[in-house]
């Protein structure tokens, strides 16, 4: 939705990719510079923890580097690395769950009706009321309260600005499932954040 449009730089990007594949490190580094912030934000929201987010960030670009020869030029580089990042992040979450650090939260069978319970308006401009770090924690905690499948759809569609179709492809879902989960994810995040931001 509010993501930066990177399509305008498509031509330069194709050139960078070609140079990177031919072994020019600076070209690959330039691609990393372009997307590292977005991948880190994605990883933070997906894993909810800075150490895991850093691991996901590194693994994503190391894998992208290793697999550069397999990248198909007819897809977008950004969509490709987002897929890698999502897979790395999900693997982290599974490992955490296996070690019981994360509660079993991944209930996907959440098909009941979504009924908003909180109707209080918010205090205006939370981004000005809270320190950045505090706000980051509030948002991360709310994201973490979502089932992983909802969280990934929200991250890809609303935060990263991928299309419904690209999100469906990245997650192996139908477009209808992406739409339904996005709707639920938004409403549930809103409920969570209302607990913090509502007028006293």
């Amino acid at each position: 939705m509010a993501s930066v449009n990177t399509r305008g730089t498509g031509k330069a990007e194709a050139a960078l990719l070609a140079e990177a594949r031919a072994g020019k490190y600076e070209a690959f580094e330039e691609l990393v510079n372009r997307y590292e912030r977005k991948i880190y934000r994605l990883a933070l929201n997906l894993t909810g923890n800075p150490e895991d987010a850093e691991d996901v960030l590194q693994e994503t670009f190391l894998k992208a580097f290793e697999h550069l020869p397999e990248f198909r030029e007819d897809s977008r580089f950004y969509t490709w690395i987002v897929r890698i990042a999502i897979n790395e992040g999900l693997m982290k979450l599974r490992r955490r769950r296996a070690s019981k650090e994360v509660a079993a939260e991944d209930a996907t069978g959440d098909d009941g009706e979504v009924l908003p319970r909180e109707f209080s308006d918010w205090r205006p401009n939370p981004e000005q009321i809270y320190a950045r770090k505090e706000l980051q924690e509030i948002l991360q905690n709310a994201a973490r309260a979502l089932p992983v499948t909802f969280r990934t759809v929200f991250i890809l569609r609303d935060i990263e600005g991928l299309s419904t179709e690209a999100t469906a492809e990245a997650l192996g879902l139908s477009s209808g499932a992406v739409k339904a989960r996005l709707f639920r994810a938004r409403l549930r995040l809103r409920e969570e954040l209302s607990q913090v931001f509502k007028r006293g």
Partner: peptide, 10 residues
């Protein structure tokens, strides 16, 4: 809020 790049800096 989630899209605000300033909230999640690298």
């Amino acid at each position: 809020l989630y899209c605000d790049g300033r909230v999640f800096p690298l």
